[in-house]
């Protein structure tokens, strides 16, 4: 196993959490009702906290190789989109509340089984961060499942909005289980997660929730990939342009 693969793997996990956390935080102040504004902001905070843990570990691995000192903020703010390894699902725009909670549900279900497996990683650091994050994700999964069910099995309007959100997002779910090169390297060593093993668990959970929500899943749809290797949808560039603006405009400053 190479250190580079472990670095890429850790960055991939950090990027997933940061990009989705950032998307969720776009809702802060604009939620459908105060109580849910607070709820989604909590999830954003959890995800950004996870990102910081992953970046902090990645920075340590990188700094171990010598060279210029890297920090969590260097990793978040000074890499361009080609270097971000998050899944395409995470960077998709918020759309309406339905699309946001569905994106969260797909992703939380993935994170739930992923962290559940990563908890047993032979790399103690990965395992420790996964264990801590899993508690948060367990709640995210509960919260987002309930919302998907509520809206799918709510009014006619909410059901049709959810169906539209499914049509938009389903195509980005396949990538979650297509291993990138760094994942393929770490999985047999018992360090990374075997995606093939958690895929049926994810599918089962998604089927159950969609059934309770009375929604049709998008079987047979073409699946987009590329995010894990730095080939993103156009959305990520704008997200980063906004997020990284101050660090780019005033290089080398403390904030």
């Amino acid at each position: 196993m190479s250190v580079q693969a472990l670095i890429d793997y850790t960055l991939h996990l950090g990027d997933n959490a940061l990009v989705l956390g950032h998307r969720n935080s776009e809702w802060t102040g604009h939620g459908p009702i105060l109580e849910q504004d607070i709820a989604l902001s909590n999830i954003a905070l959890d995800l950004i906290g996870q990102a910081r843990n992953w970046y902090e570990y990645a920075a340590r691995l990188i700094n171990g190789g010598g060279g210029k000192e890297v920090t969590e903020d260097v990793l978040a703010y000074l890499r361009d989109s080609r270097d971000f390894r998050n899944c395409l699902l995470a960077e998709q725009t918020n759309g309406d509340w339905g699309k946001t909670v569905l994106r969260q549900f797909y992703f939380s279900a993935y994170q739930f089984y992923f962290y559940g497996a990563l908890e047993h990683s032979r790399d103690k650091e990965l395992a420790a961060i996964a264990e801590k994050s899993l508690k948060e994700v367990t709640y995210h999964l509960r919260w987002s499942s309930e919302w998907v069910i509520r809206l799918g099995d709510g009014t006619e309007e909410s059901a049709s909005r959810m169906q539209r959100a499914m049509d938009e997002l389903w195509t980005y779910t396949g990538e979650l289980f297509v291993p990138a090169d760094y994942e393929r390297k770490l999985s047999p060593a018992g360090i990374g997660v075997d995606l093939a093993a958690i895929r049926p668990l994810w599918e089962q959970r998604v089927r159950e929730v969609l059934k309770a929500a009375r929604l049709e899943s998008g079987e047979g749809v073409w699946m987009q990939t590329g995010g894990k290797q730095g080939k993103h949808t156009e959305h990520l560039g704008y997200l980063l342009a906004e997020m990284q603006f101050l660090q780019r405009a005033y290089p080398g400053c403390e904030w």
Binding site: E35, Q36, I38, A39, N42, R142, W143, E146
Partner: peptide, 8 residues
């Protein structure tokens, strides 16, 4: 209500 209470 329970979940909202948890968050609020």
């Amino acid at each position: 209500a329970i979940e909202n209470a948890r968050d609020v």
